[in-house]
Nucleic acid binder design. Structure first.
Length: 607
DNA sequence: AGAAAATGAACCC
DNA sequence: TGGGTTCCCTTTTC
């Protein structure tokens, strides 16, 4: 509480003079920084002024606004202010002259009234005074009256949360291997110390290779690698646009804008015909698109009668493909599962309620080892395991309870024996063995991936290449201060321990990356951040050397470790690009011409 | 620079 | 149960 006490920089006084007469004021309230008086403050932040305040206000408007004793006054008040500030204006007894609303006062007096708003360190989160929440530079200060933004427990803030990620910047990725056999331990205890460290096989793709800035019109909602063409990445956005991009031949990109009319929620390749892509959308349709010809066809439409209001509009989020049966499994936003025969393009049987009626099913996943076993996740705070051969309501093997909405649930990619879920209660849950006791998860890993309506929901996903089925990747919501820049890394997590293996970020990507996909064969990560998509590769030895040299050079120029702050979003990269397409001027141009702007990350190192 | 908009889930009664 | 209200680390555009 009151961490900013005595810090004059953190204290400002804000008062706005707004006339309710439209002759004098524009549509928005005009604000100015002025001296504030204790008398006004007493009345609460939104109290109406005395009539005689008006002249003074106007005089004050022309005077300057800084004063040292203001800070002292505020600091003084903070200590006692915390108790009653919750409802400062409401707590005041009514009936006083001062309490009359300015509008009413103006109406009564027949002349323009002014309202004085004095905000002194008002917390935008809890609306009380005495403290402020928000960014102070690159550090976000939590509201102390709210539960921790990270672990959701009361009594502390994120800055002091025991679950807070505190990884050294530039840490060397840990080895992916974690399931040591007894031989390994013997090896470690007796031999390891005597031989040089073996380079870990698992490489974290932590170096920005290239990016496609604003490839999409709206934020990216899903990513998928082409199952056979190694360098082809598919992406979907909130507008329903489907993008195909060859990230080796940077200019080779195609977009299909007529596949869906709103959010493209899920993409799945037909495992028997990798030229065929199935897409699910909030427009309530499933489409199949031939990627060679671009020809698409609709396989399912859950809203054949068009828009009749939100209470009847069905959206599709979860979808998976059962290759054994040629069956497409589709779940809608009302809790129902639909089965679809891919060849007949026809529904099989009636829809089955698999989650609470009226609630959204967020994801579906068929077990890779036993495709008839289905995992569903829903807005009803459950993930459920089903046998698709004998589906009926309430026939789930098991219901896995979660604290909040479950964004996703995946079986482990190879054995299918584990389950990984992402829940909006900021916890990643792992069940180690689906045939064991599933009553409670084997582990709950606190990780910041909160819900925000403007962000694509975060989903922790397994690394498909990881034979030990331990490594998962997920974007981080909460930011961390990296050399003065608030960045949201992409986290690699060891799901067997909860340990953070690596955090992947770039100072030029200041936006959150909720969508992440690891390549099925290569050490490549694709990330979707806002409207852009990025490709990451492991840092090579020469990359690392180059980076060190660059850091040294910067230290020489800017002084000890202080890095020039990049205030921009993606397009504000200050460093140059190898193909010359990335400097400031050209970037502004690129803003206007969509889909033409591509960056090569490595070029940035050429200073 | 500051405001508005887009828009999903929780929570309240 | 349902509608109205609120809302904490967004991002973009004007």
């Amino acid at each position: 509480m009151g961490r900013n006490v005595g810090n004059p920089d953190a204290i400002h006084e804000y008062r706005s003079l707004a006339s309710y007469s439209h002759r004098h004021m524009g549509p928005t309230t005009r604000a100015r920084f002025v001296h504030n008086r204790r008398r006004r403050r007493r009345r609460g932040p939104y109290a109406a002024p005395d009539d005689d305040d008006e002249e003074e206000d106007q005089q004050e408007a022309s005077s300057s606004s800084s004063s040292s004793d203001e800070g002292e006054e505020d600091a003084e008040e903070e200590g006692s202010g915390e108790v009653d500030d919750d409802d400062g204006e409401a707590a005041e007894p009514s009936g006083k002259e001062e309490e009359v609303s300015p509008v009413a006062a103006a109406a009564r007096s027949g002349r323009k009234a002014s309202i004085t708003i004095s905000l002194k360190k008002v917390c935008k989160v809890c609306k009380s005074t005495g403290h402020e929440a928000g960014f102070k530079g690159a550090v976000y200060i939590d509201c102390p009256r709210k539960p921790c933004f990270l672990c959701k427990m009361p009594g502390h803030t994120t800055l002091t949360c025991p679950h807070r990620v505190a990884m050294e910047h530039g840490v060397i990725p840990a080895s992916r291997r974690n399931t040591n056999t007894s031989l390994d331990y013997v090896f470690q205890s007796q031999v390891k110390g005597k031989i040089p460290m073996v380079k870990p096989q698992f490489l974290i793709p932590n170096q920005l290779e290239c990016g496609n800035i604003k490839f999409h019109q709206r934020r990216v909602t899903c990513l998928e690698f082409h199952p056979t063409k190694n360098n082809v990445l598919l992406s979907g956005d909130k507008k329903g646009l489907l993008g195909v991009w060859d990230y080796v031949k940077l200019h080779e990109k195609i977009t299909y804008d007529s596949v869906h009319s709103c959010i493209l929620n899920s993409m799945k390749f037909d495992t028997t015909n990798d030229g065929l892509l199935y897409t699910a959308s909030s427009d309530g349709t499933i489409s199949s698109t031939d990627l060679d010809t671009g020809i698409g066809s609709s396989l399912l439409n859950l809203n054949p009668n068009g828009w009749n209001g939100p209470s009847t509009w069905r959206m599709i989020y979860g979808m998976d493909f059962n290759s054994d049966k040629g069956l497409l499994l589709v779940a809608d936003s009302f809790g129902f599962l639909h089965l679809l025969d891919r060849r007949l393009k026809a529904r099989i049987g009636d829809p089955i309620l698999i989650h609470k009626k009226g609630s959204k099913v967020t994801s579906l996943h068929c077990n890779p080892a036993q495709p008839e076993v289905l995992l569903s996740s829903g807005n009803d705070h459950y993930a459920r395991i089903w046998d698709t051969r004998k589906l009926e309501p309430n026939s789930a093997f098991v219901s896995l309870a979660h604290g909040r909405v479950v964004n996703s649930g995946y079986f482990s990619p190879q054995s299918g024996n584990k389950i990984l879920t992402t829940c909006q209660d900021n916890r990643i849950r792992v069940w180690d063995y689906i045939f064991g006791n599933l009553e409670s998860p084997s582990r709950e890993i606190v990780h910041s991936h909160d819900f925000n309506r403007h962000l694509t929901p975060f989903k922790a996903e397994w690394d498909p290449k990881d034979h030990t089925e331990t490594v998962a990747v997920i974007g981080r919501y909460i930011s961390e201060n990296y050399n003065g820049i608030a960045l949201h890394p992409i986290d690699f997590i060891d799901t067997s321990t909860g340990k953070l293996l690596a955090e992947v970020m770039d100072p030029d990507i200041t936006t959150i990356s909720p969508v992440n996909k690891l390549h099925p064969r290569d050490d490549i990560l694709a990330s979707g951040s806002s409207r852009s998509i990025f490709i990451w590769k492991p840092k090579t030895e020469s990359d690392a050397t180059e980076e060190r040299n660059r850091e040294k050079a910067k230290e020489f120029v800017y002084g000890s470790g202080s890095r020039k702050k990049s205030n921009g979003k993606h397009e504000n990269s200050s460093d140059d690009d190898s193909d010359g397409s990335c400097d400031g001027k050209k970037k502004k141009k690129a803003k206007k011409t969509r889909f033409t702007h591509t960056i090569k990350g490595k070029g940035k190192s050429k200073v």
